[in-house]
């Protein structure tokens, strides 16, 4: 790809991502930009991401939930909150703990969550389902076939995670069955 062509592609990608109201994956960009290959688009997105980091502006191109999205830097949150009327994202401690259990142990049944938490979680589970952070991920093939719960793409978006393998690493929560693999790549050490 000639350099002007790749520069042009970077601008096109920038325009689309600037306009989008949610993270777009490279695959989705490929669907729109059919005249370019997946590899070219990926290169453009990553170069754009680096470019914004280098410019040190108030927002960044962030890789989240399998896609890319422009987001303001954390240090400016105070000012945005003055503008942004609805209350910031808030979960009770109990809800957060339940969410953590689901995130690290998914797919998990309600009974198994309750075993860990020691209390009934029906209400919390309902709240998490309504907020779209948790979804029904199937049924467990044991008597009674209880529903199994897992996290959603929205969960990744809200907590700024690339994918479920990028959960903060917690020593005691090393996956017992290998369902969640330890993070790979540059921010794999973030959880230590």
């Amino acid at each position: 790809m000639t350099s002007t062509r790749s520069q042009r592609l970077e601008l096109i990608v920038e325009a689309i991502l600037f306009f989008s109201d949610r993270p777009l994956s490279i695959k989705e960009l490929e669907e729109i930009l059919q005249e370019h290959t997946y590899g070219e688009i990926k290169e453009a997105v990553l170069s754009l991401k680096k470019g914004y980091e280098a410019m040190n502006r108030s927002f960044l191109l962030v890789e989240v939930a399998g896609g890319f999205q422009f987001r303001t830097r954390e240090e400016f949150s105070v000012f945005i909150q003055r503008l942004y009327r609805s209350s910031p994202y808030r979960l009770s401690e109990a809800a957060l703990e339940t969410l953590a259990i689901i995130a690290y142990r998914q797919p998990i049944s309600k009974g198994e969550i309750e075993e860990l938490r020691g209390v009934d979680v029906s209400h919390i589970l309902k709240v998490l389902l309504e907020k779209g952070l948790v979804r029904v991920a199937g049924r467990k093939e044991v008597p009674g076939r209880p529903l199994l719960y897992g996290t959603t793409k929205r969960f990744l978006e809200v907590f700024g995670l690339k994918d479920i393998n990028h959960l903060p690493q917690i020593e005691e929560l090393a996956p017992p069955s290998g369902e969640i693999h330890s993070p790979k790549g540059e921010d794999g050490g973030k959880g230590h």
Binding site: R71, T72, E74, I80, S86, L96, L99, A100, G160, P168
Partner: peptide, 27 residues
């Protein structure tokens, strides 16, 4: 086990949470 999930919860909460710490363009 329970304590480690408490730890996990606080770690999740310390991430850059959308609409609290970081904001996308207004939908």
């Amino acid at each position: 086990g329970y304590l480690s999930f408490k730890e996990a919860a606080s770690r999740l909460n310390s991430l850059e949470v959308l609409f609290r710490d970081v904001f996308p363009r207004r939908p």
